[in-house]
Amino acid sequence: MMRPQCGIATDGAHSVKNRLTRFRAVDIATGEELFSGSIGNQTINIGEFLGVVEAVKYIIANHYTPRIIYTDSMTAIAWFQAKRTASKKAHPALKRAEIFLKAFAAEIESIEVRHWDNDGWGETPADFGEKS
C-alpha cells in the first residue's frame, strides 16, 4: 500500500523529563499543522487518543474531507472504536473525549481512523521528532 496522500495525521508525545504530554495533527496533503495541544503529565497513549479525538472534532467543525485520520497508535484506534479509554488516569480531557464520542456516535460513523504504517511509510507527518 502506498503512503497516504491526503487525510489527517495525528501523533502524541510524552516527555518524562519535562513531564508533559502533547498531541497534534497535520494535513497530510499540505503539511499544515491543524492543531496542537498539551495536557500536563499524562501518558503517550492518552496523547495519541486525544489527538485522534481532536481530529474527529476538527473534521466535523470544518467539514474536512476526506474524513480519514491516521495514527500509528493501535491503542488510540482501539480506544476510539470502543468510545472509551482503558486508562487508569482520571484526566478531565479523557472524560470529555469519551462523552463526545458517545454523543456524536452517529456523526462519527462516517469518519475512518486508520493505522499509519511507520515501517512502510516512515514516521507520521505529525511526528514530534523527539524519539531518542
Rank of each mutant, 00 (worst) to 15 (best):
R3N: 08
R3T: 15
Q5C: 11
Q5H: 12
C6L: 13
I8N: 09
I8D: 08
I8Y: 05
I8H: 07
I8R: 08
A9G: 14
T10L: 02
T10P: 06
G12Y: 00
H14T: 07
L20Y: 01
L20S: 13
L20D: 14
R22V: 14
F23C: 15
V26P: 00
V26F: 01
I28V: 15
G31D: 12
G31H: 13
E33F: 03
E33S: 11
F35R: 04
S36W: 09
S36V: 05
I39L: 11
G40C: 10
G40L: 08
N45Y: 10
N45H: 12
E48S: 05
F49L: 13
L50R: 00
L50Y: 03
V53G: 03
E54L: 04
E54H: 14
A55M: 06
V56C: 09
K57H: 06
I60G: 02
I60F: 09
H63Y: 09
T65K: 13
P66V: 10
R67V: 00
I68F: 01
T71G: 05
T75G: 01
A76M: 05
I77D: 07
W79N: 02
F80W: 06
F80T: 06
F80L: 10
F80K: 03
Q81N: 15
Q81M: 12
Q81G: 10
A82H: 08
K83Y: 01
K83E: 09
R84L: 03
R84Y: 02
K89C: 06
A90K: 15
H91L: 11
P92T: 09
P92F: 06
P92I: 10
A93C: 11
A97Q: 04
A97P: 05
E98T: 07
A105M: 10
E107V: 05
E107H: 10
I108C: 04
E109D: 14
E109Q: 15
I111R: 07
E112F: 05
R114H: 13
R114F: 07
W116Y: 11
D119M: 15
G122I: 04
T124N: 04
A126K: 00
A126R: 00
F128S: 07
F128N: 07
G129E: 08
G129C: 10
K131E: 14
